[in-house]
Each structure stands twice: as C-alpha cells, then as structure tokens.
Design a binder for these strands. Sequence first.
DNA 1: TTTCTCGGACAGTCAAGCGC
DNA 2: CGCTTGACTGTCCGAGAAAA
Length: 217
Amino acid sequence: MALPRQKNGDGIDDLSDSPTTDSSINIYPRFSTVVSASQSVRAKRMQVKNACTKCQKACKKCDPARPCLRCVRYGFGVEECLNSQRKERRKGAKRGPYKKRNGRGKHTAHSDEGEPESESSPPPGGSYPTAPGADLAPVAYTPTLYAQYPLVPSHTPGESGYFHQFYLTIAPRQESEGSAAYPPPPQLFPTTFLAAYPPPYPSYVPQAQTGPEGQMS
DNA sequence: TTTCTCGGACAGTCAAGCGC
DNA sequence: CGCTTGACTGTCCGAGAAAA
C-alpha cells in the first residue's frame, strides 16, 4: 500500500480482529461472493469506496455508514468519522505497447483463470443470495426494526440518511444434514455493538421469500 | 489475553493504447 | 469511438509486537 504510516495510530482495532470474536458472525459484509462450506476457494474481498480517516490510518475495514461501525464501537461520532481524501490521479503517463492476451472477453484483469463470471456474483447494489446452502444471507430486518436505530446521516448533500446494514454469516453446516444438526444459534451481535445500541429489540420474524433478495426498502 | 501496528495482497479506478 | 489493458492508488487481511 502506498499510504505513509504514522506510528501514533488511533489505537483502534477491528471488530473482527479479536480472537474472542465469534467468527461465524459478521455484522457487515467482508466478501462479495458466497462460497459454500464445501468449497475452500476464497471469495473476492469487498471494499468500501471511501474508508473513514480512522479506519484508513489503522488499515482496518470500514463501512459506508458514518460513523462507521468501527468508530461507533470506539465512541467516535460523525464529526470524527470522516471520509478520507483521495488523491488526484496522474495524467499523461506514457505506456508501452500492449501485450496481447489469449482469448477475448470482458475485463480479465482478475478473472483470467478460474471459472467464468458466475451468476453467484451479487448485483452492483450489493444483494446477497439467499438460496438454500448459501452461507451469507441478509437479515430480513423490517423497516420497523431499522427504525429502532439512529439514522446515519449521509455526507452527500441532498441525500437523506440511511441505516446501518447487517448481514449474518451462517456457520458451516454439520456433516449430517437436517435441522437438528445445526449448532445452537450464536450471539447475534458482539457485546461492543450491544453497548452502542442496547436492547430490547423487536423479535425477528422470518418473512416468506418473495424473491431472490430479502425484503428491505 | 487483548490491543495495536503495519507489510503486503487484493481490489477499484480510469487514462492510454488499440482496433474496428 | 468503444473496448482493453495495466499503472496507479486505496482498502484492509492477518501476523507479529507491544501493552495491560
């Protein structure tokens, strides 16, 4: 990476760093492509477009909300959780002649080898498959539930705020299929999140699948 | 044991170059 | 002029170090 690092980081760690964190639960997405438990291939990593200055300095995962979850965890407010500034791109750099590749196709910088673009890639909006066997599924929070939490103000002028989004990573299945074989449900949120947004929460009622995506408006 | 630091892999962006 | 390529820049994983 190209950023100059400063020794006096903000001293903040990532939510998922601690070895005590239940690794079967992520409160925001890490990888865009869902990989079944039987596959050992790692999915493509997701990145936010613009990390906040705190996460950037600490080289830690950020999320689009402001304050981001990491800042929420450490008690930073909107005033401190600021978008980092991006450098202007250099123009006029000369390049040598292009090497020809075998075969044609869409942008192949990252997909030359391996299977072709599969339908399992989420659409640009960031929806996740909910088909049986999927390891990552959106929690079907209703607007009612979202309304329990503070609206995250948008930094884009004219754009209204939005809610934090949460996704659950389902733990790998046991060998023996069947509902009885699932381990007991893990704690839904890390204690740090619970401290920031204490219960009670309305109980989650699974909704009938009406489409490929969870219901959220 | 927990928190912090940071090297480097990975991902996204976009202008130069290419070919129709 | 649209598509491809690859340089450039940002994000953040994950391992090791430091602190409590």
